[in-house]
Design a binder for these strands. Sequence first.
DNA 1: GTCTATACGTGGATAGAC
DNA 2: GTCTATCCACGTATAGAC
Lengths: 205, 205
Amino acid sequence: MAAGTRERIIDAALRLFGERGVAATPVTAIEAAAGLASGSGSFYRHFKDKNELLLAVIEREMARVKKNLPQLADLPRGDDRSAAPLAAQLMSDLDFLADLRPMMAILMWERGHPSELSTKVRGAMVERGVELGVADLLVQSRTPAVKDDLEAAATVMMYAMVGYFLATDFFGAAAGGVSAERFTTTLARLMVDPADIGHSPPRDV
Amino acid sequence: MAAGTRERIIDAALRLFGERGVAATPVTAIEAAAGLASGSGSFYRHFKDKNELLLAVIEREMARVKKNLPQLADLPRGDDRSAAPLAAQLMSDLDFLADLRPMMAILMWERGHPSELSTKVRGAMVERGVELGVADLLVQSRTPAVKDDLEAAATVMMYAMVGYFLATDFFGAAAGGVSAERFTTTLARLMVDPADIGHSPPRDV
DNA sequence: GTCTATACGTGGATAGAC
DNA sequence: GTCTATCCACGTATAGAC
């Protein structure tokens, strides 16, 4: 198993960096978690220093995440629409956020550093095309507030998702007891429900 | 000015802890920022150790924030409503979040510690009554998604606010170029706009 | 109450045996 | 490639002069 030591170090670092941050994670702890003797310098046979390890962790995570980019949902193009497709898209987006979680945890610890990490990862997020994709989805909405300021509506939707994810995942709050399904369903309905839903309920799921 | 040394230390710590975290802030840096000689143990004439200082910082901030609790807006009780009062309330809530910022920054660094800090501050947030207050505001909404699941709608609203604030403030993102006004206006309209606004525009501001 | 000086512990990183 | 042993930088905290 000696050949996999470098990978085991990255595994351990991904976990420990996310839990406590890079600065608060001694190399000795990484060695121990990777099955090496704590305090031996064996770590340095695989990485020049702790910062090089950090870059390797981010690089491997970025490559992994890129494979899992969610597909954009197809909203029905006709007049007969419901919030269900968008709600499904949002659930999928929550999964994507969960997939990003380890990297996000590390970046939250490293915030404020003038490193290139944030730039790199921000690029990956943009690649997913959140903003544009969301805006596309909402173009067809007949909700007045969405039609009047599409960009602001897309921003509301995106930050509601990010806020929900961060609050539930990072801060352990039960999110007021509202499940992911209820959250995404309500958010989607706020966004795309036809204004006259009270008079003609949606025929789709 | 010697009498104010303790307060100057708290001032410096509030800033430095928020910028880099407690662990990454040496006592020597606090001394320097408070106008004491860096490396002299003068700090220890005022606090037993760095943790006691952290508690003092949080305590002072909590007391300060409690004075600034925003008032709940009065939504018009009649049938003739607009989103304007809620939008104004949300702008005020953004100010409140900004007021909480220094403490939130520290808590983000200290996340994961099994300390009593999070509990304390969470209590202060609950005291503001975000959840209940928001739910109250939305009771009168005629938006279908809000009427069908008031709690989920309030959660969406709250996390949209938190997500917007965190993204703009902590991560420096331009928030897609959407200003606070556009954001809160759109969010408020999504929440309370009458379903038939297209047919009978609101007569209020 | 602030200073100089210092003891001590932790963690980053290297040397050299195996 | 992993180990033992060690050096060194940095930060905490204290002692004691002023």
